[in-house]
Nucleic acid binder design. Sequence first.
DNA 1: CACGATTTAATCGTATACGATACAATTACT
DNA 2: AGTAATTGTATCGTATACGATTAAATCGTG
Lengths: 149, 149
Amino acid sequence: MNDFLTLNKQLCFAVYETAGEFNKLYTSVLQPFELTYPQYLVLLSLWEKDEVTMKELGAKLNLGTGTLTPMISRMEANGWLRKERSKEDERKVFIYLKTKARIEQPHITKRVAEEINLCKIERDEYEQLMKNLNGLHRKLKERLKSAGA
Amino acid sequence: MNDFLTLNKQLCFAVYETAGEFNKLYTSVLQPFELTYPQYLVLLSLWEKDEVTMKELGAKLNLGTGTLTPMISRMEANGWLRKERSKEDERKVFIYLKTKARIEQPHITKRVAEEINLCKIERDEYEQLMKNLNGLHRKLKERLKSAGA
DNA sequence: CACGATTTAATCGTATACGATACAATTACT
DNA sequence: AGTAATTGTATCGTATACGATTAAATCGTG
């Protein structure tokens, strides 16, 4: 007599494999721009609000410096943005988008929108998922915080 | 005038960061068992159906051999399972759980259940998310398939 | 039987992702 | 003024995750 839920009934696995599919879908769209999926998320954040510190960007994307520092360095090497250490507080590093990111934005946005449209996700389905995922995300975050993790 | 959706309204980012939170939550629970989150998903699959081939396991978890082969090798080295090449078809490698995985199952399952219960996810919220995520996952997979990816 | 096509697993190189640690800079306190 | 505490970034080691490639094994066809 098994007392485990099957893999297919685990919410964590549903999120895990959906995240994996999103990764594959975006990777295929972004490859011609020589961007990875997480780098695209960085650009999304910076297109919305440029000139932020590494700390602020990390908080926005929920990523530690172990992930963010090498990623930003790669994006700088590829000409998307530049880093500049603050004169006022030398602990802080500011991120600035370069013109390449500005120029490519409409192209990238258009291609991504086309691809997402082709998935035929209904608007109410989208909104309900957003609402439910945000609720779930909040609960997980609160549980992690109160566990002292 | 910006024509992009903000990061916080992107479904892909909601999935991305929720997956990240699940990873952190499970990692903290599984660390005492010296298991990682993806390894736990492997065990979940094998507890449900043991004695499968690498191909079958990869299909179940939606993972390629570049990810699965080293992961299974690490789990073999840590005593969770063993690999055995088929005599009938030497291309195939079978995976068998070892007693350690059987013995530890109730302990792991109990700890995970406790932790998930502490997240206070309502049953209807859970079921609605599962339904919606499975629908989304199917659409993404179909789009990837028809794009020849 | 030989050979091409296909299948399965392994390997490789690259990019995250994480937690721990180190270091430099700033802030707070005595 | 000196020192401890805190902050912010970088580095390190390990574990995925992916797509491309390689190698061995099997299958199908002539």
